[in-house]
């Protein structure tokens, strides 16, 4: 039951996340504002960019991070809020624009600075981007198993489960 609610919520968040143009927080993100989500999406895409194979945006890594920030990563909420603001401020100061409006080269420059000066935030988003890209799709990222396909991993084989721990022995779940 819990899993079902979770999956359904995940799907609606993805749906909201893909129509990334509207303002405010009506977009349905759990933690991010729509602005923040756009910035995080762009940051993740620089960490794992699309090329011949899909990148972090296609894998919906921002969705993974948004979901986990209200679950297992609750303790990182403040680091994200400040970190994103820091990246935005750096972009404005250096190039006079929002992060999402910068050229790819400018974005890389801002993130390289963040890697030096905003270590806590950068290390978090680096790790979380890898998780959201290479990890299990059930957590909201790795959409369509794009990374697993890139690595040539066969889809999960369907194999039978053993229900009891011992033949004829009932195991309390």
């Amino acid at each position: 039951m819990r899993r079902r609610t979770f999956v359904a919520a995940g799907i609606s968040a993805v749906a909201a996340g893909t129509s990334i143009s509207c303002g405010g927080n009506q977009a349905g993100w759990r933690f991010f504002t729509a602005e923040e989500a756009r910035a995080v999406d762009a940051i993740c895409e620089q960490i794992i960019p699309a090329g011949p194979h899909p990148g972090a945006h296609d894998a919906r890594v921002v969705n993974y991070i948004d979901i986990q920030l209200t679950r297992h990563f609750r303790k990182h909420q403040e680091t994200y809020r400040r970190g994103i603001a820091g990246v935005e401020a750096a972009g404005r100061k250096k190039f006079g624009r929002r992060f999402v409006e910068l050229s790819p080269e400018q974005q890389v420059e801002i993130l390289s600075d963040a890697e030096e000066k905003s270590k806590a935030f950068f290390e978090l988003i680096l790790a979380h981007t890898r998780q959201g890209f290479y990890g299990d799709p059930r957590h909201g990222g790795n959409h369509n198993m794009v990374s697993w396909k890139m690595l040539g991993l066969p889809s999960p084989p369907i194999r039978g489960r053993e229900r009891s721990v011992w033949p004829g022995f009932f195991c309390p779940a």
């Binding site: 986990q68 790790a127 998780q131 059930r138 957590h139 009891s164």
Partner: peptide, 18 residues
Amino acid sequence: SAADCRKDDLRNQRTTVL
């Protein structure tokens, strides 16, 4: 039990990020 094999590669006893 064996049915608790969630095959969750971010949440298991070896990788515990979640």
